[in-house]
């Protein structure tokens, strides 16, 4: 970046003090245009900077403030309570339950999504030369652009124990019908199914992008060497796919840890308050939402947010480190 800039712009702005030569009659002022250029630069970033500051960085710092105070949005005074909020939090069984649910959810969704996306990408790549490949790709991707609430409606119907599609399918396969969203065992897996359906297309496309960066002749050379099928995948494709796979895994993790909308809509409505039945689908994001905006316990919700923040930040950092080390990076 700096290389290109240095070619473009007079280097005065960052050139260290030019060796002052008193013998020269002209004064070496910086070009007035440099100052203008700099001001223009600041002017151009100002609109976005302001938004990021007020709505992202500001709140991010403020979060830690609230978490350590006994604090109420409507009252003017607040009181420093140190780790008190966290102490309360750690004594709440529902907090631990939400962490457990989140972990359960993430641990299942991540590998399923990743493997399915990888398989779909390989299939789509396999059929790249055949007609209709683009349409298939678009249809697999389509769920990702659909609004969550709108499609949740039909999925609630699909998961209906009596006349939904899901049980109809099970009946065809001669499997016992399930209670799906109404069952404490199956409610969270139902949400998982929706999530995989809704998001796998995105990761498929990311995998396809990763596959596209693998030069064709590498694979052709492997074929010339007689590596086919599983061997070609394991020895050639997989090592080359490693970075992008890791990238996808982390991305899926970060996104699934923050799932909110589909849990809220799928488990709300006819099945009582969201997060049910019996807290079976209460994950961290849902609990934060409920604590803050239903029970107005902002300090406690902030403490939870801090925990979530830490977990996700750790994941993100790992991802950035990996992404920087490998080529796949945008």
């Amino acid at each position: 970046m700096s290389n290109r800039l240095s070619r473009l712009v007079p280097a005065t702005a960052e050139t260290p003090v030019r060796s002052a030569k008193p013998s020269h009659p002209e004064k070496h002022w910086r070009l007035p245009t440099d100052w203008r250029e700099m001001l223009i630069g600041y002017g151009l970033i100002l609109p976005s900077f302001w938004v990021f500051l007020v709505f992202y960085y500001g709140p991010a710092f403020f979060l830690f403030y609230i978490a350590f105070f006994h604090w109420n949005i409507f009252a003017s005074q607040s009181q420093f309570v140190g780790l008190h909020n966290f102490a309360i939090l750690f004594h709440q069984p529902v907090f631990w339950l939400s962490l457990f649910n989140t972990a359960y959810y993430v641990v299942l969704v991540v590998p399923v999504t990743t493997l399915l996306a990888l398989a779909l990408a390989l299939l789509l790549r396999e059929s790249a030369g055949l007609r209709g490949g683009g349409v298939t790709r678009a249809l697999v991707f389509l769920p990702h652009v659909t609004p969550v609430v709108a499609t949740s409606i039909i999925w609630v119907w699909i998961f209906n124990p009596n006349f939904g599609l899901a049980n109809a399918l099970l009946r065809v396969l001669h499997l016992p019908a399930l209670n799906w969203l109404a069952s404490t065992h199956w409610a969270l897996p139902s949400v998982m199914i929706y999530t995989v359906w809704h998001s796998v297309g995105l990761y498929t496309v990311l995998f396809l992008a990763g596959l596209a960066t693998i030069p064709r002749h590498v694979l052709e050379a492997a074929q010339m060497d007689g590596a086919r099928g599983w061997l070609a995948f394991r020895r050639i494709l997989w090592p080359l796919m490693g970075p992008i796979t890791f990238f996808v895994v982390i991305l899926v993790s970060i996104n699934t840890m923050q799932t909110f909308s589909q849990i809220y809509t799928l488990t709300g409505g006819p099945h009582g308050g969201a997060g049910g039945p019996a807290f079976a689908t209460t994950t961290d994001s849902l609990l934060i939402y409920q604590t803050a905006f239903l029970y107005l316990h902002f300090s406690l919700a902030s403490a939870m947010s801090v925990v979530l923040f830490g977990l996700i930040l750790a994941l993100t950092l790992v991802q950035k480190l990996i992404a920087d080390r490998f080529v796949f990076y945008r």
Binding site: L8, P10, A11, T12, T15, R18, S19, K21, E26, W29, L31, P32, T33
Partner: peptide, 21 residues
């Protein structure tokens, strides 16, 4: 004038234009 010399001068009709945009 797209770049600036580190030292020395550019003159147009014997008039220095180093600071001229």
């Amino acid at each position: 004038g797209l770049e600036r010399a580190t030292s020395g001068h550019t003159l147009l009709d014997d008039r220095p234009i180093d600071n001229m945009p």
